[in-house]
Amino acid sequence: MLNTILDTVKNHNFKNVKRVSKINLEIGELTFINVEQLKFAFEVISKSTICEGAEIEVKFIKPYIVCNHCGYRGELDTVDDVIISCPKCGSPSLKIEGGKEFNIKNITVEFEEE
């Protein structure tokens, strides 16, 4: 994540970048990422970079499934550890089409005054 942000700022040839102040993420619930651990790890690895001290906001994405048994298509309301079943018929035979994402939605960059 840090390298992607640093590369993006570098590749866009932004001049006078002071810092990245905010990072908005979209994370699928099926990644089972612990946000507090993610924030701590990012805090450690971002020291002495333009991302040091950046606020991280997370929007969780619900799993989107297709049931191979009854044809249900839609989001799952709850994820019970790793046991996932169709909310309509209870079948565990599902195709998961969403909920495993990890996207950097956008970043807020502050610039030096000229």
Results as ranks from 00 to 15, higher is better:
35 V>R: 10
44 V>K: 12
48 S>M: 06
111 F>C: 01
89 C>I: 03
7 D>P: 02
23 I>S: 09
105 K>N: 15
66 V>M: 05
74 G>C: 11
39 K>I: 10
62 K>I: 09
49 T>R: 08
107 I>M: 06
52 E>M: 08
108 T>R: 10
2 L>D: 09
100 K>C: 15
52 E>C: 08
4 T>Q: 12
82 V>Y: 15
109 V>Q: 08
84 I>T: 06
96 I>E: 14
17 V>Q: 06
105 K>C: 09
60 F>Y: 15
1 M>G: 06
38 L>C: 06
76 L>I: 04
98 G>N: 12
8 T>N: 07
108 T>I: 13
22 K>F: 11
46 S>D: 11
103 N>T: 01
5 I>A: 07
68 N>A: 07
95 K>V: 14
4 T>G: 13
100 K>E: 15
11 N>W: 01
8 T>R: 05
35 V>C: 11
41 A>R: 12
110 E>K: 05
78 T>R: 04
14 F>Q: 07
48 S>F: 00
95 K>R: 14
24 N>D: 14
101 E>Y: 00
61 I>S: 12
41 A>H: 14
51 C>E: 04
68 N>K: 15
76 L>P: 05
68 N>L: 14
12 H>E: 13
18 K>R: 09
54 A>G: 07
18 K>F: 01
66 V>L: 00
113 E>F: 03
95 K>D: 14
22 K>D: 13
42 F>C: 09
98 G>T: 09
4 T>N: 13
26 E>R: 06
10 K>D: 15
47 K>N: 04
90 G>T: 01
10 K>T: 12
21 S>D: 03
67 C>P: 08
7 D>G: 00
27 I>W: 06
74 G>S: 13
48 S>A: 09
5 I>T: 00
67 C>E: 12
94 L>F: 07
18 K>C: 02
